[in-house]
Design a protein around this nucleic acid. Structure first.
Lengths: 389, 389
DNA sequence: AATAAATTCTTGACGAAGTTAATTTATGCT
DNA sequence: AGCATAAATTAACTTCGTCAAGAATTTATT
């Protein structure tokens, strides 16, 4: 586990955590309304809120516009003070580091992007530490920052802060949390990148208020994070959300050993390979393929269409199995989503079963710093929701 | 909601429910061990157990064989007294009623099978009431029976006890719980049949001790019940677990409007249709098809093999998405599982991603009264686990 | 046999967390 | 001004579970 004991915001009881989480994610709400939504008594809300107000995390807003009958003491909604604490989030890829500073609401206040020189642990640790310093000095952040979130792709144990396996970095069993806590002096939360993005979406994005939803990322790989009954699905053996390896076609072999995986059709690599095949140009890049398709090359357009079809079927499988309220599809691959959105939605609509099709489907490109914001959101979550692992 | 307020077993606190549930599902355990497994103090266990012992639901066993170092006061494990209360479970199909009486552990003590004359509500209600009476009089059950569980296929609201939609019975919005409580004098719990079977498996079967697992039924339809982080997945729009409509092939159209659904390949109806095609015999039945395949007819064997393949791929999709600890495959279709087990396991093993493949896969035929036992298990659950809906 | 050590179970005092019900505060309406 | 109304607060009380001490029941040792 992370060596540093995390700074504990004034969470004095389960009720305090519930109240604060609601206010953090659902904006200013009066005490009475908080009580109604959480099922607590309004007396309990008053007690829970007091220490947060005293410590500067919450403030009372002047009573807003009146809604109900028109008499009675006006409500003074409780609101987060986002500047009370800052968080650093870092995403580590094989090639670079992306870092952000966010406020309590996970709104980005500063961001930096560094190339990553090498993959050995010591090098990465000092590069991250340097990036953190640079970020903290880019504004008046230092004395109100105590938590750092780090996200990377691969098998990561949040509890222990270990990187069990990272293919991109070539790491196995690296105690990254410990190393980075020593190097930065901040309390660290380490999480898988897709899970981090899912948590950001659950607390501060499309998933707010939904007890069950999914985030799907499309890019070099295709993966997803699932939230069911309010909790992130982790998988008994550490595998979950592998929508990229759901079989949806008879055809292509996948690097995983399976056949017809979504990822074997719709990953960046698969699309490029197929575009090279249909154009006969072995040097074609993704950007060029996108240009060709947008210019009207029917063969290349069809490659994207098939990718959209495969993703749509994968989404339908996901939705038929667990019936989320909403699904967000995002990732680098979505920068070209004009090329496959139609096919994706059509395949999804045809295959989603009954009222599962009513599930909202949001497609949205993913700015690169969003990954780092996800890491920061995980840090926010572990500060205020000690329940989560 | 059901009109009758349920008889409340001596559940005096959350801890009492936790302790009793553990003992009910995991057999005799000493107080100290219960404390260890639940995270409660041993004092809390003593207090929680007392009223259950007083009311005859639990008893203290004579100390069993000693395990540890060898000194100290021997443990006297707490054990359920299964005869303390009986439960009736009824499964309603389009053609018949299957009913059982079970004890607290959901062990079947008596069972009956009636044909169902018609589908109108009044008729079904009186047929069920008659079956209940017959069951209760078939042994010394009456005065220790207060709860009835009813399971049927379709869209069912457990909370309100309403049948929202049942295709087999042709019902819409029938307040069945209310009607049956009046007719039988028992407290009723109504649940979807697959969910009921899943709950039975979660509490008294393969799912015991697993926080995440799945039950898949293969027969006229193909469906599944999913348990994630200890809770049954319900779907935001009432749809979940529809593994039957996960697309796994390019080919056949499904009655749902989709393409390549597992159900379009591996349901009883699909198998029979395909067997008729390959044999050229339009009158072939399922039993005959099974006989032909077992006798070595290669074309028919291949029909079953393809069904096994499709189910295996569907399971892989499920496992890649959720990562359950265990999966149980069951249903009427499993009576012929010698004909597709190999293909099923092979397709599953090839497509399951990474360590998700370590998930245990149990194939097992489903005795017809198991459906009714599922209904009884739901009644047991709603008596002792008020938290569940 | 007597004593020590180990382990389970029980008891009663205590404390944390949240509820209920009464009270205070702040507003609109007449 | 005076009353109605609704939000927020306060204080007493309830509930649940922990803690720490001790009773119970066994094995091991002198």
């Amino acid at each position: 586990m992370p060596r540093r004991t995390p700074p504990r915001a004034p969470i004095t009881s389960p009720a305090a955590a519930t109240v604060f989480e609601l206010l953090l994610t659902q904006g200013p709400i009066s005490r009475v309304e908080v009580a109604r939504r959480t099922g607590l008594s309004s007396a309990a809300v008053t007690k829970a809120a007091r220490p947060f107000i005293a410590a500067g995390y919450l403030e009372e807003l002047a009573s807003g516009e009146r809604v109900g009958p028109g008499a009675g003491r006006p409500a003074s909604p409780l609101a987060i003070r986002p500047d009370r604490e800052y968080f650093v989030g870092i995403k580590i890829t094989g090639d670079d580091l992306i870092g952000v500073v966010t406020d309590l609401r996970a709104e980005v206040r500063a961001s930096r992007h560094h190339a990553l020189g090498g993959h050995d642990v010591g090098h990465v640790v000092s590069a991250v530490a340097e990036l953190v310093t640079e970020l903290l000095e880019s504004g008046d952040f230092r004395e109100r920052t105590h938590c750092l979130g780090v996200a990377l792709s691969g098998d990561v144990d949040r509890e222990s802060g270990q990187v069990r396996y990272s293919p991109f970095l070539g790491w196995r069993d690296v105690p990254l949390a410990e190393l980075l806590e020593d190097a930065t002096g901040l309390t660290l939360t380490l999480e898988n990148d897709v899970k981090a993005l899912t948590i950001a979406e659950q607390w501060f994005g499309e998933g707010v208020g939904a007890s069950t939803f999914a985030l799907v990322t499309v890019g070099a790989g295709i993966g997803s994070g699932l939230v069911v009954n309010g909790g992130l699905v982790s998988g008994a053996h550490g595998v979950a959300g592998e929508i990229g390896h759901v079989p949806v076609a008879a055809g292509p072999l996948c690097h995983c050993g399976g056949t017809g995986c979504v990822e074997a059709i719709a990953s960046t690599e698969a699309i490029v390979a197929r575009a090279r095949l249909v154009t006969g140009e072995p040097g074609l890049t993704m950007d060029q393929a996108v240009d060709r398709a947008r210019a009207g090359d029917l063969a290349v357009r069809d490659v994207f269409a098939q990718a959209g079809h495969a993703i749509g079927l994968g989404l339908a499988a996901l939705v038929n199995l667990f019936g989320p309220e909403r699904v967000v599809v995002s990732g680098e691959g979505l920068s070209a989503f004009d090329l496959f959105e139609d096919q994706l939605r059509q395949a999804f609509a045809a295959q989603a079963f009954g009222s599962a099709a009513r599930c909202g489907l949001a497609l949205r490109p993913l700015p690169f710093e969003e990954w780092a914001r996800g890491a920061a959101a995980v840090a926010v979550q572990s500060l205020f929701s000690p329940g989560q692992p």
